[in-house]
């Protein structure tokens, strides 16, 4: 924080560019990973033609999206139809800005935190931005002027508002334990070990119910199987993005994966100790290992997402709602009360 202004601005710009680049690459390759893993789960190869192991497939997909004709159907409400993919994309990409990826590194005598910006209400900021993300989906469904899209948008807004409550309450347990909204502080408190070998992560620190509530609610927040009702292709065509084509469709697709990555980052930071992990080797390696551990944990989460997608069937809409309100929410509240009692004790 004590950086001179020009260096602060330069560091911020460089960090933003790097994070944006890494995030977009990660989005592209989580699509690749998903197609590959789901392919293996369903006993087929997945993408294998473009490059070794199909590694250049995201590039080919991107080119295809760019060169496809960008249709705007005549019956849509044009301003919102054009704005909706942008809204979804902007909020999905913005929430990454307060996520810390590792400790500070020292460059030329200045200590630079590995995070675009360190705000002391970081967690609330992420919750706020993700709660605004629902407008992209809802407005896309409404402005398409198509009954399938409208149903998808309605389902999305009801589902996201309902599960946001369980998601928020599941995080309060962690907040009570750490007493801070700053993601950096929360991670710093998870260093060290219990009994010499169990990491002092919040997951092992009494928050496993909180974690599972968070995990389930996060599946619903990101509209992933088994909660992908807004785009249930069996009943709604393609749901809220039925009328979208080319890059506008790609924007929704990328927003979904960006949200997945954000949710995975948040789970890592709050429940799995963030960048904490064994450190060894020369100083340079010691500086880079935290980022490596962080990445490994996030990739594990994305793999879990894909695994669940390849395994579970889709729920019915009434099942989704009653599960959220009648099971997940009481469980989150019970976890909150139990944590509060344990902390005060």
């Amino acid at each position: 924080m004590n950086l001179p202004i020009p260096i602060f601005i330069a560091a911020s710009v460089i960090k933003s560019v790097i994070v944006l680049f890494v995030l977009l690459t990660a989005i592209a390759y989580s699509v690749w990973l998903e197609r590959k893993v789901v392919g293996r789960i369903q006993n087929r190869w997945g993408p294998s033609r473009v490059g070794p192991f199909g590694l250049l497939q995201p590039l080919a997909d991107g080119l295809k999206f760019i060169f496809k004709e960008d249709l705007t159907p005549p019956h849509v409400y044009r301003p919102l139809f054009l704005a909706a993919p942008m809204i979804a994309m902007i909020f999905a990409l913005t929430s990454i800005s307060v996520i810390p990826f590792g400790n500070s590194i020292t460059v030329g005598g200045y200590s630079i935190p590995l995070q675009i910006t360190d705000v002391n209400i970081g967690l609330l900021l992420i919750l706020g931005i993700t709660s605004m993300g629902v407008y992209g989906v809802a407005l896309a469904g409404w402005s398409s002027n198509n009954k399938y899209s409208l149903l998808g948008g309605l389902r999305a807004s009801a589902q996201m508002v309902s599960y946001e409550i369980a998601l928020g309450l599941s995080l309060v347990g962690v907040l009570i334990q750490s007493g801070s909204f700053s993601l950096r502080t929360i991670v710093d408190q998870q260093g060290g070990h219990f009994a010499g070998f169990i990491p002092r992560w919040n997951f092992f620190h009494g928050q496993f119910i909180g974690f599972f509530v968070y995990l389930i609610a996060a599946f619903a927040e990101t509209n992933r199987i088994p909660f992908d009702l807004p785009e249930a292709e069996g009943e709604l065509g393609a749901g809220y993005h039925t009328e979208y084509s080319a890059m506008k469709f790609a924007a929704f697709f990328m927003a979904e994966y960006a949200n997945m990555i954000t949710v995975g980052c948040l789970a890592t930071l709050l429940f799995f100790g963030g960048w904490h992990g064994p450190l060894f080797g020369p100083p340079l390696m010691q500086a880079l290992l935290p980022v490596f551990w962080f990445t490994v944990k996030v990739v594990c989460f994305i793999f879990l997402y894909i695994w669940v997608r390849g395994t579970l069937p889709r729920l019915r809409y009434d099942q989704l709602m009653s599960f959220g309100w009648k099971f997940l929410l009481p469980l989150a509240i019970a976890n909150l009360v139990a944590t509060a009692i344990a902390v005060v004790w």
Partner: peptide, 27 residues
């Protein structure tokens, strides 16, 4: 800053979603 965060989460993210939901629902 806390009020600002709550403003975005509760007002812009929850109450207004309800409004948009009802507008969509009643067409």
């Amino acid at each position: 800053e806390f009020v600002a965060a709550i403003q975005v989460i509760v007002y812009a993210g929850a109450i207004m979603v309800l409004f948009v939901f009802v507008i969509m629902l009643l067409n």
